[in-house]
Design a protein around this nucleic acid. Structure first.
Length: 487
RNA sequence: GGUCCCAUCGUCUAGAGGCCUAGGACAUCAGAUUCUCAUUCUGAAGAUCGGGGGUUCGAAUCCCCCUGGGACCGCCA
């Protein structure tokens, strides 16, 4: 094993940054940081068909947003670059040639059609699809023939029947029967290396010490070990994380779950700390009853051998709870700042910037009620813009219109008589007013609250009065009175 | 179909032979606080540890079989 811990994630920019990728990245990041190692990002963009630049940006932005800065990779460079596979293309040929030279690989002239037919017939006979090895023992004249026909050729790696076993950091000892693989392709007929090949070479060249990835790569590992042996490379240590499932226990997918970090989480008002904390708990636990961890606490506590072996279902309810929890831990100012970009209504946006202190006071009142930053817009709207509501809402459940009207009128009076609407002044005054009217506190307070907020659920009447202030409160109370009287 | 991986409350999980009449968290329900909602606090319900065999004085924990679920079987990554 290399003396320095070097791990990598190798995203392929073919789509948005995915929850599963984020979790793999996180575990790699934690593992590296824990041991003072390096976390590298290598972009696997050799499949020109599918990759695009916006995906790359989405992935890189997502990584930064979650607080996982990479030590080597795009934008930052590093001593083992380039970090884009597309720029590494020239690196692979010598290794392929070397393998062909040593008769550990050979050119295969089979056409895609032939191979598809072969696979199909194998499958119809109920046997596992596996390359026949037809081109492995081509004679020189046969090769000449193909070359003269300008048939294109891919390169296949020679797999001799044997057991391949390795000690997985998470799964323990895993063994595969390589005899079942068939000779697999390592270089396409257009000269592009295949994932198995480029991965092995890049990991070696980049001195990667540990390959920590999702369980879907378990079988690849056996192939990569074979390849590494043939190339005289020392294989890195492998660790495979269990998958994250949809509710129906299939591999987590965007069809069945919100999986895009940017669109489904960041844009929806989730906090990066909450997401990181939640994702860490998907498969890992500290062994204590603690569940709340900051990134740096995670780095301290993380142990690869405390990553479980069974898949976990993504529970968005718990994430939501955790996000609310993190929101509550933040200061009013932090929430207010973070919330600003979630306000889309122009009028409200303007109001918020014009009255920053008032905005802060409003946030203070709704703080405990938030689970997502995106809820702020809806929660604070009525602080700035007079609410619309049905007059029937003004009447508390066990009250009457007459009582409500009287209550509102006396509330107006109380408010006008107070110099300031501090919590300490408003509460006794209003309670006193209710007593004078011989109605329940609740009847009066409900009406006042609705008059101010226009909602059946909101912060309390006293808090609302003291934040909204004398002038505006009086206006809203009078509006309420008019609504009721107009009937 | 083949190979591999996995299996504790609805969900995330603790559990490395006796501390387990199985612990915690989310969700659920009830209560307290209360003008509503939320927060907070208290409590309840919820898992015969997938099933069956062993090993052992003793098994959720070790072994075997079965069942179930999943992943992978591409000139994608």
């Amino acid at each position: 094993m290399a003396d320095e811990i070097r791990v990598r994630i190798a995203p392929s920019p073919t789509g948005k940054f995915h929850i599963g990728t984020a979790r793999t990245a996180l575990f790699n990041y934690l593992f590296a940081k824990k041991f003072g190692g390096k976390f590298v990002v290598r972009v696997e963009d050799t499949d020109q068909q599918r990759h695009d630049d916006s995906s790359l940006k989405d992935i890189l932005d997502g990584l930064k947003w979650l607080g996982m800065d990479w030590d080597e990779g795009p934008e930052v460079g590093g001593p083992y670059g380039p970090y884009f596979q597309k720029e590494r293309l020239g690196l692979y040929d010598p290794f392929v040639l070397q393998l062909i030279d040593k008769k550990l690989a050979y050119r295969c002239y089979c056409t895609p059609e032939e191979l598809a037919a072969e696979r199909e017939s194998q499958q119809s006979q109920g046997s596992a699809p596996k390359y026949s090895g037809r081109c492995r023992h081509l004679s020189a004249t046969e090769i000449d023939q193909f070359e003269r026909e300008h048939r294109s050729s891919a390169v296949r790696f020679v797999v001799e029947p044997q057991k391949v076993s390795f000690d997985d950091l998470i799964k323990g000892k895993v063994e595969f029967d390589a005899g079942l693989f068939g000779d697999f392709v390592i270089q396409r007929s257009d000269g592009m290396p295949l994932f198995v090949l480029s991965n092995v070479i890049d990991d070696n060249l980049m001195k990667i010490s540990h390959v920590l990835r999702g369980e879907e790569h378990l079988v690849n590992t056996a192939k990569q070990i074979l390849l590494a042996d043939a190339l005289n490379f020392l294989s890195p240590q492998f660790g495979h994380f269990p998958l994250i499932f949809n509710k129906d226990r299939s591999k987590m997918s965007k069809r069945k779950n919100p999986v895009s970090i940017s669109d489904d989480y960041k844009a929806k008002g989730f906090l990066p700390d909450a997401l990181v904390n939640y994702i860490a708990l998907l498969g890992w636990n500290s062994g204590t009853e603690r569940e709340i961890f900051s990134m740096s606490e995670l780095i301290d506590e993380f142990e690869i051998n405390r990553v479980g072996t069974s898949p976990s279902i993504f529970d968005s309810e718990k994430l939501l709870w955790m996000n609310g929890y993190y929101l509550r831990q933040k200061s009013i100012g932090e929430v207010a700042d973070a919330g600003r970009e979630f306000i889309t209504n122009n009028e409200l946006q303007k109001a918020v910037t014009e009255e920053p202190d008032y905005y802060l006071n409003a946030i203070a009142l709704v703080h405990d009620r938030l689970k997502l930053l995106s809820e702020i817009e809806d929660q604070i709207g009525y602080f700035f813009i007079s609410p619309k509501y049905e007059q029937s809402l003004l009447v508390a459940k066990k009250s009457t219109e007459a009582n409500t009207l009287a209550a509102l009128k006396s509330a107006v009076k109380v408010v006008s008589e107070l110099k300031t609407l501090g919590l300490d002044e408003v509460e006794p005054a209003l309670r006193g007013a209710a007593e004078d009217l011989k109605i329940k506190d609740g009847e009066l307070l409900w009406a006042v609250r609705v008059a101010l907020s226009g909602r059946d659920a909101s912060p309390g009447a006293f808090e609302l009065l003291s934040v909204i202030g004398k002038e505006e409160s009086t206006k809203r109370l009078n509006t309420a009175i008019k609504k009721l009287s107009a009937r």
